[in-house]
Amino acid sequence: MAQSKCLSLSEAITNTVVGYALAVATQFAVFPYFGPQVGILQNLWLGLIFTGVSVMRSYALRRVFDRLTSKR
């Protein structure tokens, strides 16, 4: 069964809110290790870290919403 429009909107909003919270928490955890001056290579590593966190977040939320729709 396809996901309803309302549930798709709820998923997108939840994904955005959780993503923002994780980004802020990740910045607090990661930035002190790099200091205030971040070079190109460090930016690439930061991008990789944030991309990995984002992929894990998206996957976990997708599984949660998939379970919600499969219980109906």
Rank of each mutant, 00 (worst) to 15 (best):
M1Y: 07
A2M: 11
Q3D: 01
Q3V: 10
Q3Y: 05
Q3T: 10
Q3F: 06
S4Q: 06
K5S: 12
K5Q: 11
C6M: 15
C6V: 14
L7R: 08
L9M: 12
S10F: 14
E11C: 03
A12F: 15
I13W: 13
I13E: 10
T14S: 15
T14E: 12
N15E: 15
N15T: 13
N15K: 12
T16E: 12
T16I: 08
V17N: 05
V17D: 10
V18R: 05
G19D: 12
G19Y: 06
G19P: 02
G19A: 05
G19S: 08
A21T: 06
L22R: 02
A23L: 09
A23Q: 08
V24C: 04
V24S: 05
A25D: 01
A25F: 07
A25E: 03
T26I: 02
Q27V: 01
F28Y: 09
A29L: 13
A29N: 00
A29S: 06
A29W: 10
V30Q: 00
F31K: 05
P32M: 07
P32V: 01
F34N: 03
F34K: 04
G35F: 02
G35A: 02
P36C: 00
P36W: 09
Q37W: 03
V38F: 02
V38G: 02
G39D: 15
G39H: 04
I40K: 07
I40P: 04
I40L: 14
I40T: 11
I40D: 11
L41M: 12
L41Y: 08
N43H: 05
N43G: 13
L44S: 08
L44W: 11
G47V: 01
G47W: 03
G47L: 06
G47C: 01
L48I: 08
L48W: 11
I49G: 00
I49S: 00
I49T: 07
I49D: 01
I49E: 02
I49Y: 03
F50S: 00
F50W: 00
G52L: 08
G52F: 03
V53A: 04
S54V: 02
S54Q: 12
V55M: 11
M56G: 01
M56I: 05
S58Q: 13
S58W: 12
S58R: 07
Y59A: 10
A60I: 06
L61W: 04
R63C: 07
R63I: 09
V64I: 15
D66W: 10
R67W: 13
R67D: 08
R67H: 09
L68V: 13
L68D: 06
T69C: 08
T69R: 14
T69H: 00
S70G: 02
S70K: 13
K71C: 05
K71P: 00
R72L: 09
